[in-house]
């Protein structure tokens, strides 16, 4: 077991005041605090070499979970073991085996080329020249950034910068890699490149990945298993495909007629199914079990010019889930 989290709770004491100058004065002398429960008893086990997606809205507790796993934050209650280490003790051997990439924060020095920061990491992680060269060559080749190594970080594009951030985080070949929104703000090509990289790296080095992303295509393509956190509570832990099926069991079907059927036949269809008809194309969003029967009826009328069956976009599905999670789980 790579990561084992039991009944993890994390609370923050937060200063609270209402807007306005008067309230600012009042709170200066009479400060009011409230406790914000970021995580409310999370259980989570992650196996070696697994890629786990952590889903949740902004403020759900995903980043807090990651920060506890890497030892930045102390748990309020509960147990956390990462490869048998207690992260909050910040054991140096533990820190050599783990790494984090935060899409919204930089670890690279802004004013110098990324290659200089890599050399700094070489010293920090005490890498030999051979280890450093092997690792750097592999990562640079995978990301195809050899020509950008000596360019100042502030002159790189967002996508190039993120690739350099990932290289900096993986130079020491950590066993556990936490990726907090690594593709945020990137164009589709850069997103795809980073996804390909994660897949390759996971297969090649058997590293364990924990990934948060608001782009469902990241999760869909990388994570078989996901954990869904909502307001500090784990709502779901299982196959991503099962979650999607639970949330939205309907499929979209488009059937293009060669010739529009008679009004009587269409009326019969309308009595049995829900659909729209436009330019000879019948479109329906129906439960999966209805589709075969409907398809049989349509083929009985005539062979189509074209026919398509597809799942609803995952983004839309997850959006409807987060709007009302209790309805689905």
């Amino acid at each position: 077991m790579s990561i084992k989290v039991t009944q993890l709770k994390k609370s923050f004491k937060m200063f609270k005041r209402q807007a306005g100058l008067k309230n600012a004065f009042t709170s200066f002398f009479n400060r009011k605090y409230e406790t914000f429960h970021a995580l409310k008893g999370i259980d989570l086990n992650i196996d070696d070499g697994e890629i786990l997606g952590v889903l949740g809205e902004n403020g759900a507790g995903k980043t807090t979970l990651m920060k506890i796993l890497i030892g930045l934050l102390y748990p309020t209650e509960g147990d956390v073991f990462v490869d048998d280490y207690v992260p909050s003790k910040r054991n140096k051997d533990f820190l050599r085996q783990i790494s984090i990439v935060m899409g919204q924060k930089n670890q690279l020095w802004w004013d110098i080329p990324a290659s200089e920061s890599f050399l700094l990491n070489k010293q920090i992680y005490n890498l030999s020249d051979v280890e450093y060269k092997d690792s750097l060559d592999e990562l640079v080749t995978l990301f195809d950034v050899s020509e950008k190594l000596d360019v100042q970080v502030r002159r790189l594009s967002l996508g190039e910068r993120m690739k350099m951030e990932i290289i900096a985080a993986l130079l020491h070949r950590p066993k556990i890699i936490l990726l907090d929104e690594p593709t945020i703000g990137l164009d589709v090509i850069a997103q795809s490149k980073i996804r390909d990289f994660i897949t390759y790296y996971n297969q090649e080095h058997k590293s364990t990945f924990l990934l948060t992303s608001h782009y469902m295509s990241d999760i869909e393509k990388l994570c078989k298993r996901v954990a869904v956190i909502h307001q500090g509570i784990k709502l779901y832990d299982g196959q991503f495909s099962t979650l999607i099926d639970n949330i939205n069991p309907t499929k979209k079907m488009m059937f293009e007629f060669q010739n529009l059927p008679s009004k009587a036949i269409l009326k019969e269809l309308e009595e049995k199914y829900t659909f729209t008809l436009e330019n000879n194309i019948l479109t329906t969003h129906s439960p999966e079990k209805i589709i075969p029967e409907m398809l049989a009826d349509l083929f009985a009328i005539e062979k189509p010019t074209s026919f398509r069956l597809e799942d609803l976009p995952v983004e839309d599905t997850m959006k409807s889930f987060f709007e009302n999670p209790d309805e689905f789980i």
Binding site: L72, R90, K92, D93, L95, I98, M102, I124
Partner: peptide
């Protein structure tokens, strides 16, 4: 700003 994060994840004395 939370920039101590990356420093605390390094295997040297913070």
């Amino acid at each position: 700003k939370g920039d101590l994060d990356f420093i605390l994840t390094r295997p040297i004395d913070a």
